[in-house]
Each structure stands twice: as structure tokens, then as C-alpha cells.
Write a protein that binds this DNA or RNA. Structure first.
Lengths: 189, 189, 189, 189
DNA sequence: GATGAATGAGATTTCATTCAT
DNA sequence: AATGAATGAAATCTCATTCAT
């Protein structure tokens, strides 16, 4: 029956993900990772050939999760779509920590890492495309203001995702508050 | 007396600040810093004992700058005060790269770093205090909406500062766009 | 499982001990240690975080050895006990190179080192306690002179242990010579 | 009237001597030395070309002091001479810290250091010669015991110098106690 | 003469990766 | 498959010494 399985690939990726989010990509070490896993450091190499591949796999996995969820959003009504998307992104908040770091991964060492990083970047483009599409639709429909450039509206929308949920409200509730503020403003009506 | 300095303390901190902003705190090394300064790497050690001390000094300096500017904001009219504060913060946008990282600085190695990080955190509290005061006043005045908890309004406001000015608009213009959105919302009226 | 160890922990400590004795604590480096062990310098860091931890471990081990032997000395007859103790200490002559240096170990870097140094110092107190007890008994018995304060007698006795056995006599013989001199004096009777 | 004199050569050597005694030769740094002197580190080079020369000068100075004092000891009565010598050595206790370290000085860098170290070693031989002479005389005179080899007697005598004066008695008093013990023994007569 | 500053060589330490059981 | 151990390359830091004001 062999040796006990030290940790599964998913445990590895979960742990790595939370470490990258906490410490940032460039402070992420396999030594650190191993110290948060049940098995030995060298066991990591059973799954991934090097540090970069681990990071790329983490990023890709998070991206895929977001893509799947975002893909199921109904784009008919742009405003409702944006609200739903905000919920999705809120649930996948880690994504934001990775966006900037994906380009930092030293891809020269490993084909597999390079491949994954590329997929991450193209999924990212895909998500941005969806957002652009919805914003365009909303503008045509006249449901978002037109006196301010769309990209400013979009930038702020994107920024919402990062807003730290300091009081630990349920993600949906938090997302809906922020959406209301984004759409209606903070001023008294 | 003594040789001419290869770089001033301010040049060092300017360079370090821009590197931390570009690469993030966790990718910031003294090797990197040295490569962007005239002179040898070991010269940095004449002034700072390690990366942590440099980073803490950079953060403190930025914080002091912001504190001074924020202190001169007239709080009479809360809404105008918020608009002015947003401009201030926008000019000191680097601040935001540091806020999250200040707690990541490994303070165990160096007393000087620990001291500076503490000052940074207490200045941060001071800024939050100002913000809370203004929000309270605005609420009493009835100029911000009351159907959503104040801390949500404040969180989003705080987040505005982070919104990357991707199109490199002049900071004031950018700040005023964001303020309008924050106050009036992105929806069409 | 795992590769065969390049050296055991005991080999490491033996080597370190002999180097500290030869060169003194302050000349002792991990580079030096590595050059007297098979394998790479970095291997030492698998077991000890720095020179201080190695030194503290060496000192503790020597102290424990001495404590065990000294504990088995029969204290009934104080003079015989002192003679036996001197033999013990002579066999564990390295101890003396450490006693003075234990306080020099820079304990700030490493908890493990601090812990071990503390244990060394408390074992040292224990040994002094035994010595004091025996000297008291001898004085009550009237077998040591009383015209000179006991602590002077004890200090000199303690110093005997340090007396370098320059001619490399067998430790027992050397110990007995010194004991005779300590007890009877160097003068002609 | 020029710049204020930062420190005199004697202040430099005094400070260096106490540091070498405290920390041992191999932990002795010019950085450390400078931090215990009023002036700048580079000023040390006005007096000595390098670290080794400083150390050698410290050792030589201490040796000369001892030699002068020991030279004025009247050797007529060997026993009295030994008692006087013990006082001298007690006053110059630092000597012992240097004896072992003199050979550690890296003499390859500096002729002056090499020269000084050689003088130190030859003065040391001179002192040993005096001691041997006195012991021989005492033995011929029959005032020291002959059942134990002279070198054992001498070793113990030499060791007396190191005996830590824990209770901080005046050096003379301490020396005389130890001499009495060395000569008459610790046993009750 | 005194010194503040610069600097390279070397010491120390960390970590990704490989190896052998 | 899992892992304890080894290791070299690189990062970090210290210090003796030189330089220029």
C-alpha cells in the first residue's frame, strides 16, 4: 500500500495560493510552502518541476475558477450582469493579487510555467473583454452616465473588487453594498 | 571634510520609493536599489542596516508628506473636504502601495525599522481619524446617504485612492472624476 | 530514507569542540568547522542556524558529561572527594576553555543558543555548589587550613583545572601531582 | 592650531588592550575599537597601518611593562623573588590573554607587526628564563620540594596568575594569599 | 592631522534543486 | 511515492582599508 500520501495536489495549490496572497509572489518560497504542508519539501517536486510551475499553476487555477463563474453570467441586462460579475470577482478576490504578479514569474526556466502564464494572460484578456462588452452595452442602453469616460467608470468598478471587506460581511452582501454605491453614489439623493 | 557623497539620503529614498512602487515591497532588494544608484552596494549599509530600514524610512517619509498636506485641508464643509482630501491622496498615490506592506516589514531585525513602522501605523490611524470625523459631519449634515453603513462609504472612499490612473490623466482631473463618481454614482441620472 | 548523512551530529560537535579548544571561541567560524568536516558548509546549516548554536551545543554537551561524572563522586571524605573531582575535571579539561566563553556567546540571534547557554550556566552553578559543599565539610573537619578564606582556597582549586598539562602526562597522574601541590604546597617540608 | 587631537596613541592602546582582553584577539575589530574612542575610525590609520600593527603594539607595550617590573626583582632569595614576581604578574594580568594570541596575529601583512610580535615572543622567553633560573636556584637551595618535577611546580605557579580575583581584593593581598597557598598548601598543618 | 565617505573582498546565511535510500 | 539529506549559487551583510576634502 506504499507510503502515506503526504499531501494532494489540491492541498498544495490551496496552501501556495494563500501564501502568495499573504506574502506576495516574490516572497513566496518553496521552503515556506513546505513548512505549511504536512510532507517534506522535496515531495513538492513530485508534482511540479520548480517554483515557477507551482506559482503558475496556482494562478491558472484561480483564473479558471473565475472564468467559469463569469462565463455563466447572463449578459442580457448589462446592469444586472455587472452586479453579478462583482459578486463573482468578490468571491475570487485572490485573482487581483495575481494579476500584477503573473508577469513577474520567471518563465525562462520552464516551458510548462510559460505555457500556464500565457493561458492566464489570455484568460485575463477574455475577462476584460467581457467587461468591455457589458460596459458598451450599458452605455448604448443609456443606463450608465456618459459625461465621464467609460474607462474611468470601468477602473472604479474594477477597483471595487479590492475594497477590503474589513467588517467581514458575507461576500454577497458586501458586493451588493458596493454595487449600490458604485451605481447610485454615496451622496444623499 | 570627507569625500563627496555619492548620493544624498533623499536620492536614496527617492530611488527606493520608486522601486518599491514599481516592483512591490516583496521584490525590493538592496541589490536592486544599488543598481539604480551611483556607487557600490555596500555604501547603502553606511546609512541603513538592511532592506527593512530602507523600506520603513521610505514609508515614513511618504506618510509624513501626506499628513502635512492632509492637515491643511479645511474641514468646514465635509463634502468639499473629502474632495480636497482625495486630491491630496491622489498626489501621494505611492502611499497606497505602502499601507498594505507596512505590516509586512520584518521588524524583528532592526529597532530603527520597528520604530519607523510604528510611526507609520500611528500616522495612518491619524489619517483615518480625520476621515471618520469628516464622514460623521457629512452624515449629520445629511449630505451623504444614510441607508448604507458609514464604514462601507468610507471603505469605498479609501479604495478610490488606489484606483490606478491607467490613462495617466493629471492627478487633479483624475481625482475629480473619481470624486464625482463616488458622490453621484456611475448610473445615468 | 534519505541519503546517508555526511557526518553525524556527534562528529560535528566533536570537531567543533576540538576547534574551539584549539583556536578559542572567538576564532571559531563555521567556515573553519566545515573545512574539517566532510561535505559542504551549507550542510551545517541543516542542523544549526549559526556559529552560536554550534558553540552552545558543544558547551552544553561538555557540561553534561562533567556533571554526570561529578555527580558520581562520593562526598563522604571531603579531601578524597576533592581529589576525585580534580581527576574528573582534568578528564574534561575542555570545560575550562568554555567556562569563560559561555558568557561571550552572542545569544541575541538564536533562542536555541540562549537556552543552551542558560543551561550551561546553571549546570556550572550546580558544580560550584558541590565544590562549596565539600569545602565547607573539609573546613568543619579541620582538614584544610583556616587562616586563609575558603573562597581563596576554592578559587585556586578551581584554577588547577586550567593548568595546562604541557608535558602531556596521563590525566590521572597530572591531576594527582597538582592535587598534592594544592594540598601540601610547593615548599620543601 | 589645527584640528583638535582626536585621541592620543596611549588612549588608543589602552582602549585596544581592554577590548582584546574582553573579547579575545580574533574578535577584535577596528570598528569596535573606533566605537570606543572619541575620533573616527580612519584616524587610527594615522598611528598604525593596519589592525595587526595595533594588536602587536598592544602586546609589546604590555610585555615591556612586565619586563621592566620583573627586571627589578631581586633574585638573591629565590622564594622572595617568586613572591615578588607573582605580584608583578598579578598587576600585569592582561599579559596572559596575549601570550596565546601573539602567535595568532597575521604577520604576513606588515613588517612592523612581525617585528613587534617577534620582540614579544623573545621577551616572553626572557621572562620564562628568569623563572627557570629562580626555580633552579630554589631547588638547589632545597626550599622547594623535589619529589615532584620542577616543571609541574612551575606550571602551577604560572597558573596562579590567571586565578580570577573574584572578590576584588587588592592585587598585592591577593597575590600574597595565592603565594602562601602555593608554597604551603591548602591543607591544615 | 582628522575625518566622513566609498568600496571590495570575504564572511555568513538562505534556498531551490538534486540525490539516494 | 516519499523523504531526509546534501549542496552550490546567490543574497545579505561586515569590515579593513583607501580616498578626498
Amino acid at each position: 500500500m506504499g507510503r502515506k500520501r503526504a499531501f494532494t495536489e489540491d492541498e498544495l495549490l490551496d496552501t501556495a495560493e494563500s501564501l502568495i496572497v499573504q506574502h506576495g509572489y516574490s516572497s513566496f518560497h518553496l521552503k515556506l510552502l513546505a513548512s505549511h504542508l504536512p510532507g517534506a519539501r522535496s515531495t513538492i517536486y513530485q508534482y511540479y518541476a520548480n517554483k515557477e510551475e507551482v506559482a503558475a499553476a496556482v494562478m491558472k487555477r484561480a483564473m479558471v475558477r473565475a472564468l467559469v463563474k463569469a462565463g455563466s453570467v447572463d449578459e442580457k441586462d448589462p446592469i444586472k450582469a455587472l452586479q453579478q460579475l462583482l459578486r463573482v470577482y468578490m468571491e475570487e478576490a485572490d485573482l487581483h493579487y495575481f494579476l500584477g504578479d503573473a508577469r513577474k514569474v520567471d518563465v525562462a526556466q520552464s516551458k510548462k510555467a510559460a505555457q500556464n502564464v500565457n493561458e492566464v494572460l489570455s484568460m485575463l484578456k477574455h475577462l476584460r473583454g467581457q467587461l468591455d462588452r457589458i460596459f458598451d452595452a450599458a452605455q448604448k442602453q443609456g443606463t450608465i452616465r456618459s459625461d465621464i469616460p467609460v474607462f474611468v467608470l470601468a477602473s472604479l468598478f474594477f477597483q471595487l473588487i479590492n475594497t477590503p471587506n474589513t467588517l467581514q460581511l458575507p461576500p454577497h452582501e458586501w458586493a451588493d453594498y458596493l454595487f449600490a454605491l458604485w451605481y447610485e453614489g454615496s451622496g444623499a439623493h
